[in-house]
C-alpha cells in the first residue's frame, strides 16, 4: 500500500506542473489585465503598478519566478485584494468551503443512500418511481434555481433561516441543501443501480436461503457491495462540492473559496487564479487517492496496483 501511495504521489508531480503551466499561460492570454478598468489609468501609473507585481518582466521569467516561489509554498500577493497574500486568502476561505462541502456531502449521503436502497428494494413500485423521479428532478434543477427558491420559502416566507450570510450556525442549512441536492440525487441513482446488481448475486441468495431477515440482508450484506459505485463517485463529488460551490456561495453570500475562484478569473487576478487552481488540483488528487484506497478496502477483489 505504501508503494501504491508513493507511486500515485510521484505521478501527481507532472500533473501539477502541467496544470500550473497551462493555467499560467492561459490566464495571461485572456484579454485585459488585472489593472484594466473603465476609468483608464495613465501609462506611467500602469507601469508602476506592473513593476510592483513584476509584470514588466518577460512572461517566461514571470513563470519561473512563480514556480520558484510556489515550490516554497508562497503563492504570491493577490492583485485584486491588494496587500493580501493568496495563501492567506485560501487559508481564510477554504475552511468555509470545506465546511459547506462536507455538510452538503453529508446531506447528499444521508438522503441519497436511503432513497437508493428504497428504490432498489421496492423495485418498480410506487416508492421506487417516486424516489427516482425526485432524484431526476434533483439532477435537472440547477443550484441557481434551487438556491433562490428555498431561500425564498424557508428564509423569506417562513423566516426559519437567514437568506444570506455566514454569521449564525443555522446559516449552513440552506446552502448545504442547495449544494447537496444534485449530489443526493446522483447518489440515490447510483445506490439503486449498485444495490440491484448486488441483490441478484449468489451470496445474497445464499443469505436469503439461510433465513436471514430481509433488513439484515439489505443493510448488512447487500449495502456494502451496492455502495461501490457510490464510493468511486465520492472523490469527484467531494472535489466538485468544495470547488464548484461558486453559485451557492454567491447566492447565499458565503465567504468561501469558490467565490474567489471565479471572481479571480473575472478580475484577471493572475496569482489568485493560479493559487486556487493549484490548491484545488492538489485537493482533487488527494481525494481521488483516498477514494482509491477506500475502494480496495471495500472490495476484496481489487488490489493496490
Amino acid at each position: 500500500m505504501f508503494k501504491f501511495i508513493l507511486n500515485r504521489l510521484l505521478q501527481a508531480i507532472p500533473v501539477l506542473f502541467i496544470i500550473v503551466a497551462m493555467t499560467f499561460f492561459m490566464v495571461r492570454a485572456a484579454p485585459g489585465g488585472p489593472f484594466s478598468q473603465e476609468r483608464k489609468v495613465s501609462q506611467q501609473i500602469l507601469e508602476k503598478m506592473n513593476e510592483h507585481y513584476g509584470l514588466n518582466d518577460p512572461v517566461y521569467v514571470q513563470f519561473f519566478n512563480y514556480l520558484k516561489h510556489a515550490l516554497q509554498g508562497d503563492l504570491g500577493y493577490s492583485y485584486k485584494h491588494e496587500g493580501r497574500t493568496v495563501n492567506e486568502m485560501i487559508a481564510e476561505s477554504f475552511p468555509v468551503s470545506l465546511k459547506l462541502g462536507a455538510l452538503s456531502l453529508l446531506f447528499a449521503v444521508g438522503v441519497g443512500i436511503p432513497a437508493g436502497v428504497l428504490g432498489a428494494v421496492k423495485k418498480n413500485t410506487f416508492w421506487d418511481y417516486s424516489a427516482m423521479s425526485v432524484a431526476l428532478m434533483g439532477i435537472c434543477l440547477p443550484t441557481f434555481v434551487v438556491g433562490p427558491l428555498i431561500s425564498l420559502i424557508f428564509g423569506l416566507w417562513l423566516g426559519w433561516f437567514n437568506v444570506s450570510g455566514w454569521f449564525e450556525s443555522g446559516d449552513v442549512v440552506l446552502p448545504s441543501i442547495t449544494l447537496g441536492l444534485a449530489y443526493a440525487a446522483y447518489i440515490a441513482r447510483l445506490t439503486r443501480g449498485g444495490m440491484l446488481d448486488v441483490l441478484n448475486q449468489d451470496y445474497i441468495r445464499t443469505a436469503r436461503a439461510k433465513g436471514l431477515s430481509p433488513s439484515a440482508i439489505v443493510w448488512k450484506h447487500a449495502l456494502k457491495g451496492g455502495l461501490l459505485p457510490v464510493v468511486s463517485f465520492m472523490g469527484p463529488a467531494l472535489a466538485g462540492l468544495i470547488s464548484g460551490s461558486f453559485v451557492v456561495e454567491t447566492i447565499f453570500q458565503i465567504p468561501g473559496l469558490g467565490r474567489h475562484f471565479v471572481n479571480a478569473a473575472l478580475s484577471r487576478d493572475y496569482t489568485m487564479v493560479l493559487g486556487t487552481v493549484l490548491f484545488y488540483a492538489v485537493m482533487i488528487i488527494i481525494a481521488n487517492l483516498v477514494v482509491d484506497i477506500l475502494q480496495v478496502v471495500l472490495n476484496p477483489r481489487l488490489k493496490y496496483e
Binding site: 433562490p148 423569506l156 423566516g159 437567514n162 437568506v163 444570506s164 450570510g165 454567491t250 447566492i251 453570500q253
Partner: peptide, 18 residues
C-alpha cells in the same frame, strides 16, 4: 458593510430583515 454581489440576494436579504 456586507459585500453582496448578487442583486436578488441583496434584495431578499433586505426583505428578510438582514
Amino acid at each position: 458593510f456586507i459585500p453582496i454581489e448578487n442583486q436578488s440576494t441583496e434584495e431578499s436579504s433586505f426583505l428578510a430583515g438582514q
